[in-house]
Nucleic acid binder design. Sequence first.
DNA 1: AGTTGTCTTTGCGCTAGCGCAAATAAGCAG
DNA 2: CTGCTTATTTGCGCTAGCGCAAAGACAACT
Lengths: 230, 230
Amino acid sequence: MEISIKDLKQVVVFQNATDDDLRLILQNSITRSVEEGGFFFFQGDSAEYLYVLASGQVKLMQANPNGQQVNLRTIYPWQMFGALGAVRAEASYPASAQTLEDSTALAIHSKFLHSMLETRPYLSFDLMNLMTAYIQEMQARYRELATERVEQRVANALIRLAGQAGIRSEKDAAIELSFSRQDVAEMTGSTLFTVSRLFSEWERQGIIKTGRERIRILKPHELVRIADGV
Amino acid sequence: MEISIKDLKQVVVFQNATDDDLRLILQNSITRSVEEGGFFFFQGDSAEYLYVLASGQVKLMQANPNGQQVNLRTIYPWQMFGALGAVRAEASYPASAQTLEDSTALAIHSKFLHSMLETRPYLSFDLMNLMTAYIQEMQARYRELATERVEQRVANALIRLAGQAGIRSEKDAAIELSFSRQDVAEMTGSTLFTVSRLFSEWERQGIIKTGRERIRILKPHELVRIADGV
DNA sequence: AGTTGTCTTTGCGCTAGCGCAAATAAGCAG
DNA sequence: CTGCTTATTTGCGCTAGCGCAAAGACAACT
């Protein structure tokens, strides 16, 4: 897969970059492809690269010392990942990056990134803005986890996913998602079983329609009602 | 309370600022004092200022639609707060800032901050670094909340607090903390009752010694053991 | 069409931790 | 010293949600 300057303009953090800068970035990067289920990096690895996803899907997960893990977020094309480790000198990745399907990403050397940051003020600024948005999301999810019941958290997760990864089907107003029960459980700090039971219940109520690794949201407003705590 | 340029050098984000810049910052700021229990700002307020705490203690809290709240973090002198709202144009604060004791802070106008950011690359860069550190902490706490039991989370919170706010007593190696059971509960996504029960148990085991709004850690290593999941 | 591996469902039992209520203790003001 | 306020403790009951196990459903491959 060939990545062009034009492609890079879709990256939020590069929106203010000049063509020359983008060219420089391309010259100092390599393209890496990882097949479904593989890893771009593991939690704890020394952070040599910052990645920009070109195609596919990548999920960022963090494991605790016992190996139990949570899903921090899913990355879609032209989003960055690995930035946390890469912007700090000598840092390691705080999470692992596993592909959900065959994926290709541009890998930018951390050292090169650092040199860019020194001379390109807009880059720090845009990165900072990205980080603030991310902090807000994490704070909101943290609060959710601390104060809301599983039911509400799962409903919220579906709503959030519908916005990020949902495919709106043509005929009806339904929204299609491709996630396993396990995925949703890891996103909400719950378990595969509980999520399955919730889905069964919601399906009985006609709010969603499920299949293997598929969720089709029929009545989004009902989910919002559940998320708000009935 | 008079805040000087020398004081501002203790602020991590200003570590690379010139004296001239710091002087400019002081000129474009006001000093605000808030008595114990009062608020510097409320969640949802339009973010007019970024604050630098000069004295006292401030806790940042986020409430869900039902009013239930979580403690995001406690701010100590020469740390910034309100940055999340202030760096984004037209934003509002995602959390409330309540003082735990009489406090004074330097309030920097958001608009002035924006103009500084445009012409002072080091500022964006240092802010970005602050944000990345904060994201990592939030991710770790999120994972903790999702995968660890209350007992472990509370032990972890005490350890974290010991590092940030602990006062090491002279005679013995004990560490003093001033937080109520309610505070600890809000920090760990638990309840006042559960925390009280845990403290009672730990006190029986001689790990801590408690009083009204006081916790004295006698055996930190025991807490670490509990945090690691026995 | 059969085989295999993975995902999902559901019953069942269990417990961590919530939440109320009532008693107690500690600090503060007059 | 006394009363008032606020923090804390503890008993008690309860339930949301975990976790195991066994069975069923899908999808892909041969």
